[in-house]
Design a binder for these strands. Structure first.
Lengths: 225, 225
DNA sequence: CGCTTCTTTATAAAATCTTTACATCTCCAT
DNA sequence: ATGGAGATGTAAAGATTTTATAAAGAAGCG
């Protein structure tokens, strides 16, 4: 079992230290940012399982960071604030914050709310392994088997297949896939996708000239089944 | 759009009244219970979209009610309490409570937390799909099924069918359909529409010489049923 | 280096959309 | 009822867009 990774975005070093000690002693992996922009880029590069976001930041307000993150980041975001202003709470929640705690918070309660948020998130988003016909995808150990034979995939190929498997049956648009795998700013590079879908098909399809797993939805995207 | 239904379980009539007024003025439908057992049976019979559960109840504690409900009830449960005890909060959250508010709570915050909980719940649990006789249209996954068999539609065919399905029973004029699917400036290209209605009918109608789903309203447009 | 992986480019192939031509239907005036 | 004009349906051609594939260049890594 690998640890859950939590990103702390807060400008006060003492608070970060306090949170870090508390979280690490409860078996979470912690990464930290002191500013909003640093937090956003760390979130993009590490995709943590949860974000603790302070409202008062030096470069941009926590509310703004929240909005920017929510354009692409799906995991829980818990807001922290010294202010108990109802308006702040309401706007944060309405912009997609998972929870809102007022400082000084109690360590036990924060941990419980973190557990709750992560649990709710995994039961809906994450699953450990996915079986689709002759394919078996283990999301924890990143192992793919076809007819019980191990397949060798590159990192990007694996990420793509995992994304497909997590959304079995749904049509995923080019834009969505590109954003999820390559990140923001790659939404127009549909050719990448074609190349990688091609190599993936050669590996996972029994007859890649007639794919049964990755179906192309012309003009829209792809569907995995 | 039908209203969200919320179940209040609280023994104090004033609190129930207060909550009811607040919720109903925000377009929620409210049902109420004064005891834990009554709450459980109401929840079973009505399956509300969210439960507001008081910790202090006359017959059994809110924590017990929570545990019993969570054995089968998946929708959000927000706990309310006069006690701000950390222990209560932690046990409630660890037993599957979605949130925990301490009385006296602010109406705006409660409403925001209710919105947040319901929104999170529908995006994960519900996939709103439209069923019309032998047709099933899943607007989220972009999947069309006829007699449980997957249909392969092109992008434009899908858009057209989705537009029809969203306006089931209504007569849509040529102009309106053309503007919605092809955009402004195509209002006069009624021939496009004839071609695409033709191909759609071949795919979705059991007998396309005698269409039952897409009905032509001569001189006006089409109607879907 | 040698190897793997990722990014680009080029081009062939396939799917989809548009347009044209003509058949068929509907409904009203005769 | 009957003929005909306007509206609608069908089929098939071409034009256009989208997709697949190979293969060359670039980047990362032991």
């Amino acid at each position: 079992m690998n640890k859950w990774q939590i990103l702390i975005i807060d400008d006060e070093p003492q608070i970060r230290k306090l949170l870090q000690i508390n979280l690490e002693s409860n078996d979470y992996k912690v990464i930290q940012a002191a500013t909003g922009n640093e937090g956003i880029s760390l979130c993009a590069s590490h995709t943590p399982d949860l974000v603790l976001l302070d409202i008062g930041l030096p470069d941009k307000s926590g509310q703004e960071v929240l909005k920017e993150l929510r354009e692409w980041y799906q995991n829980p975001i818990i807001m922290l604030s010294v202010l108990d202003g109802e308006k702040d709470i309401i706007t944060a929640l309405d912009h997609g914050a998972t929870d809102y705690l007022t400082k000084p918070f109690r360590a036990g309660e924060l941990l419980a709310r973190i557990r709750s948020a992560i649990k709710r998130n995994i039961t809906t988003v994450n699953t450990q392994s996915i079986v689709c016909g002759d394919l078996e995808i283990d999301l924890v150990s990143r192992i793919i088997k076809k007819n019980n034979e191990l397949l060798k995939l590159t990192s990007t190929e694996y990420n793509l297949l995992a994304l497909f498997a997590k959304n079995e049956g749904k049509v995923l648009t080019h834009q969505y896939i590109l954003r999820e795998i390559w990140g923001i700013g790659y939404q127009t590079e549909t050719q990448y996708l074609r190349v990688f879908v091609g190599t993936l098909r050669k590996k996972i399809e029994s007859d890649y000239t007639n794919p049964l797993h990755i179906i192309t939805e012309s003009g829209v995207g792809y569907r995995f089944q």
